[in-house]
Computed example of a mutant assay.
Amino acid sequence: MSKLRFVDVCAGAGGLALGLEKAGFDPALLLDRKAVACETLRLNRPAWNVLETDLLDFDPAEHQHTYDVDLLSAGLPRVKSSATVARAETEEELRLLEATVLLAHSIQPRALLIENVPGLVDSPNFEGVREFIRKELEHLGYRFRWFVLNAADFGVPQDRKQGVLVALKERYFPAFSPPVPTVSEHIPVGRALRRSMAARGWPGADAWAAQALSVAPTLVGGSDKRGGADLGPTGTKKAWARMRVNGGTLGNEVPGPDDSPSGVITITVPQAALLQSFPPDWVFAGKKTVRYRQIGHASPPPVGTALGRSIAAALSS
């Protein structure tokens, strides 16, 4: 049986595409406007067809191999409510969301997958956006479902809620069900990072892991326009502090044999990738802050795999 084909827009570091690949999908095209994200994709999957361009400038007529794919997927930049931020700050994210839906007009996928903030699913602040999407998708003959997933339910050691839209052509929709959790208990930070914390002989690795009993707070990549690499806002930093982690910075290496067994430690970029459940051999291009932002903005691959399997099951019904 041939693999299902997909187009992934705003592909970033490849978290969603990597998950879909494991679910049995082959990419016809991956698109992102950031050179460093495209470099990351090419470093890890040289055979993938990666296009560096803005989704708002993308013309599928110039890439006709994208027509009639099985799935159009998008892990889009997080939209923000116009009730809480200035219009200029959220306009671009909303344009990308609308452009993804409009792209379905051209390439006519059998299924559409959009992953974004949980509020997009049911917040009154996004009612107008949902109504636009409803009209467009119904006009194209899709039925759709909104729902929220938590990455922790799929083996990701992180409390990361994701708003999801799955739309399928009318004939396939009745067979679709959102993915169900794949783990019976959440994986705590200590268990996820114990081996890496001990990699340089730190004598406090086991004791640290034993007290880091919560899943990680949501990793955030932050804005490309300001700030350095840290683990998130004030509340997130406090949650990290309770696990003896300095959330205000990222380390260059894990603790070594001469570091205090009971000291506060810093998470490294490779460890952040583990908390997003990227494979250990997945390489991120760029310097430390740029690499961390790619990780923080990504969709955890196991969530993409679960979604891909649910969509594949419906398409094969």
Results as ranks from 00 to 15, higher is better:
Cys10Tyr: 07
Phe25His: 12
Pro27Ala: 07
Lys34Gln: 12
Ala35Trp: 10
Val36Thr: 15
Thr40Gly: 05
Leu41Gly: 01
Leu55Asp: 07
Asp59Gln: 11
Asp59Ser: 13
Thr66Glu: 09
Thr66Gln: 05
Tyr67Asp: 12
Asp70Gly: 06
Leu97Met: 13
Thr100Asn: 08
Thr100Ile: 09
Ala104Val: 11
Ala104Ile: 05
Ser106Trp: 13
Pro118Lys: 13
Pro118Ser: 09
Pro118Leu: 06
Asp122Arg: 15
Asn125Ala: 15
Glu127Asn: 06
Gly128Glu: 06
Val129Ser: 08
Arg130Met: 08
Arg130Gln: 08
Lys135Asn: 10
Leu140Val: 02
Leu140Pro: 11
Gly141Phe: 09
Trp146Ile: 11
Val148Glu: 14
Phe154Pro: 08
Val156Glu: 07
Arg171Glu: 15
Tyr172Gln: 12
His186Tyr: 06
Arg194Ile: 01
Ala199Lys: 02
Trp202Gly: 00
Asp206Lys: 07
Pro217Trp: 06
Gly221His: 07
Met243Ile: 00
Gly247Pro: 00
Gly247Ile: 00
Gly247Asn: 01
Gly248Glu: 15
Leu250Cys: 02
Val254Met: 01
Pro255Thr: 00
Gly256Thr: 00
Gly263Cys: 02
Gln271Asn: 04
Ser277Tyr: 04
Pro279Glu: 14
Pro279Ala: 14
Phe284Tyr: 14
Lys287Phe: 06
Lys288Leu: 14
Gln294Ala: 10
Pro301Lys: 12
Ala313Glu: 10
Ser316Cys: 04
